[in-house]
Amino acid sequence: MIPASFDYSRPSSLDEALAVLGDAGEEAKVLAGGQSLLPLLRLRLAYPTTLVDVGRVAELRGIADHADHVFIGAMTTHHEVIRSPVVNEHCPLVALATATVADPAVRHRGTFGGSLAHADPAGDLPSVALALDMDLVARSSLGDRIIPAAEFFVDYLEPALEPGEILVGARVPKLGPGWGFHYEKFHRTAQAWATVGVAAAVRRSNGTVEEARVALTNMGPTPVRAVTVEAAVRGVAADRNGSLREAAEQAAEGADPPGDLHAQPDYRAHLARVLTHRALLAACAV
């Protein structure tokens, strides 16, 4: 199928992009890698009047190693994220989850920021952003605005970006030593969206869980932080003797899983429990 007509603009700087976006009106859309947007356009499920292609805005691209965080530019491709030594060293959960996104060709085009700004709860990166408490950086003509991940995913496909704002990237906190990570994705075929996914980060010491961050993919209109699990898992033995499983039993609490072609809500809730347990085990490396 074929997209409907739109105007197109390809700014070469962020300032120019903001200016174009500001002029283009409410129905303008930012085009990043296009791997989510183009299928929507082709199926005529979206009719933007203008696409602002930020593919040539160099400022949006790249990964920077800061003292307490890693900054990942919005236009950094999945492919680049997966191969980044900085990301793999300081925020391996991002690399692990990104490696499960779609397929290699899509990862060559698809971008880190595009995935977050698309705010699809079935996407793999939003739950990771939530689990890691990323700070998302949005720029407008007024300047930068820091949006904590917990506030970024407003609703289904609805990020907390104002018209005229562009996602610049995200600050991914360096969690420091002692943390283990895992992204557990359950999908029916390799390139299918996650039926449910679990992003987990666990800090252990002496065989005990000190702290855990758990967030769920496709368990509601937005990614969901499994706060009950996080509380329940604190202080339990990081082993296979059942306490992690017990904590994981609460994974679906507070979630509002969708029912669709691929799974009904009760099955998703069940999967969330099973997969959370597995993610915790893997993050604890036991």
């Binding site: 199926l43 029916r188 075929t189 390799a190 299918a192 072609l261």
Partner: peptide
């Protein structure tokens, strides 16, 4: 409901 290959799941080599 299964109008696209995202919904009508064909196995890939990985499956």
């Amino acid at each position: 409901l299964t109008t696209t290959m995202a919904d009508y799941l064909l196995p890939s080599a990985a499956d």
